[in-house]
Amino acid sequence: MTASTTEQQEGGSGKGEGQNRSTILLHTTAEDHHVARMAAVALGLTILEGAIPSPLPGVKPGLANIVTLIVLARYGWRMAVWVSLLRVFAGSLMFGNFLTPGFFLGLSGALLSLLVLGIAQHLPSRWFGPVSHSIYAAFAHIAGQMTVVYLWLIPNAGIAYLIPIFATAALVFGTVNGLIAARFMEEAK
């Protein structure tokens, strides 16, 4: 895979000086296109999810993780990392929260859950399926977020009070997302 998933870029440096105009062409593979397509689906789910009211800030179904799970099962961990991180970065640009605390919360959660998925994918597939992956990833997601919240935003032991709420949400939504991913892969076979 090439370093970028951008299909084609035309960069004109300096509007007045015509001679400096240059064209950058990035050669992309079919795999890149696939990453972009899957990331786009994940983005769509993120936006859809933004319309669902949440009882507590931070408690979200994480529907985009369904895409990450499917990509992990079908195309491996590297592709899942691409899709997940593209979704985080592009999503933050779309919602206008790039480099805000919310962005770093999403990023830390995504990074830690990708790390855990990297380990969890080696579980014997005869016994463990997307449901397990999804639950572990969901717990890793809140663990990453809570760590950033505690170290950076609210360095107060009082947030421990919220951990059971987030853990319950992770268990429920992790299971549901895993089931959706498993069901989808079953039907697509």
Binding site: L123, P124, R126, W127, F128, G129, P130, V131, S132, I135, Y136, F139, L171, G174, T175, G178, L179, A182, R183, E186
Partner: peptide, 16 residues
Amino acid sequence: VLQHIKPGDWLTLVLC
């Protein structure tokens, strides 16, 4: 829906 949950998944669910 339940048939998508493998034995290890049940274990994960119970432990979590």
